[in-house]
Computed example of a mutant assay.
Amino acid sequence: MSFLNSAWRRDRTEPTPSPRAGEVLASARELRVRLGTRTVLDGVDLDVTAGEVLALVGPNGAGKSTLLAALAGDLPAAGGAVRIGGAPVAAWGPRQLARRRTVLPQSAPLAFPFTAGEVVRMGRAPWAGTPLAAQDDTAVAEAMAATEAVGFADRPFPALSGGERARVALARVLAQRAALLLLDEPTAALDLHHQELVLRVCREQAAAGRGVVVVLHDLGLAAAHADRVAVLAAGRVTACGPPPDVLTSPLLTEVYAHPVEVIPHPRTGAPLILPLRA
């Protein structure tokens, strides 16, 4: 209890310190998560470090989104442990947790007619009453510029297209300025240009010292932009490491139950993943 009391007092008066390069921002050890009667994750070990983009890939139902939600502290563990900022995830209160990690879910329904700019500003709520609240305007402006959302800042969020809403939701996450970004399929509703934009933003966030975990279905994006890739299948991490080491033809063919060819890009050498067709 003394840890909780001291952390609560410290978070009311002090900004969260910036992470050191290579610092473990979140970790899972022997993580097991159940949804209803089904075990969705079973024995997962994973570290997320400052300064990296970690992509979670795998077939539908592999447990990617569940792992992201567990790392965020939004889903309780049935076994094992999740730690954020060096402490058990349950040790942090909601506002303390929001200052350490920010989450982009697959969908962000919003019935009220807030403008896009107002939605992005919601990301600054965890810093209300702290010295960092003085950065609100700058954080919102920089986040909207980074996601190319400035042009519709005054439009109602529900009136935006799917791709525009996705970029506003990402801008809200960026404006929060937490050390750990957890993004669930942020490219799903986007065209080619904005898919590349989102992954470039992820790389920029990692270069600034943050840790980024991103769930992706596009293996090409993971190969091109991630520092590490974790391949999930049947609730377990079957491989984790640099893209060339992990995204191999035998492993992907087995995991996706479809023949896959992997060839190096002729210019960059990054793996190109191609499904074999009859």
Rank of each mutant, 00 (worst) to 15 (best):
N5M: 06
A134I: 01
L232Y: 00
R277S: 10
Q106A: 07
G129V: 07
H225T: 13
P94E: 11
L216Q: 02
A111E: 09
R203S: 02
R172E: 03
V44F: 00
A87P: 05
M122K: 01
W8Q: 15
P259I: 05
A69E: 12
V40Q: 09
S65N: 15
A143I: 07
A134K: 12
P126H: 11
T115F: 12
A62S: 15
D47V: 04
E261K: 08
Q176R: 01
D11K: 03
V198H: 07
T102R: 05
S2K: 13
C240F: 00
D42P: 04
A91V: 04
R236E: 11
E164L: 04
L192D: 04
A90K: 12
A125N: 09
D227G: 00
R155G: 06
P131W: 08
L232K: 03
G22H: 09
R32A: 12
G220E: 02
T102K: 13
T187Q: 01
H225M: 01
L190F: 02
F152V: 06
A116T: 07
T115A: 12
G43N: 13
Y256E: 01
L110D: 07
G85A: 13
T115W: 12
R12C: 14
R83F: 01
A233M: 08
P275F: 01
G93V: 09
F3I: 12
K64P: 12
E14R: 09
T147P: 01
T102P: 03
V255H: 05
A207L: 08
T238C: 15
C202W: 05
L272T: 04
R9L: 11
V173I: 08
G51E: 08
G123T: 07
A178C: 10
A69K: 13
T39L: 09
